[in-house]
Design a protein around this nucleic acid. Sequence first.
DNA 1: TCGATGACCTCTA
DNA 2: ATAGAGGCCATCG
Length: 120
Amino acid sequence: MARRIADRSHPNPAIVAIWRAVAALPKGHLSTYGVIAERAGLGRAARQVGYALRIAPPALQLPWHRVVGAGGRLALPRDSEAYDQQCRRLRAEGIVVKNGRVPLPPSTSLDALLWGRAHC
DNA sequence: TCGATGACCTCTA
DNA sequence: ATAGAGGCCATCG
């Protein structure tokens, strides 16, 4: 289950909402920045999701590696350390990372909302 | 207040 | 499949 994130973890409620949305991702499930933004009530502020993950305290232990770009493309620089770590973590969960991309259903934004669904 | 920036998204060539 | 351009939205200096 997801760790509870206090409302005052960050002065900005939107940031907290993003963290919660990410924390709610079940193991082995993937989601995109756009979907997370949507679920956090930010509409199309997908970029904000990246910012939120960037400033997220390690103590939260957010499964940020389960968040990828649209189409299953990893949103981090190929040569960065974070990219390497995301690859490693995804593989640890049984997700195949191939050439900087992960297998994602050829669905559009509508179906995309279903992936990150936290219920069975 | 304004311009620059970014772990984004989508379309077009 | 790859590259470039425009658009979105909130934060930062």
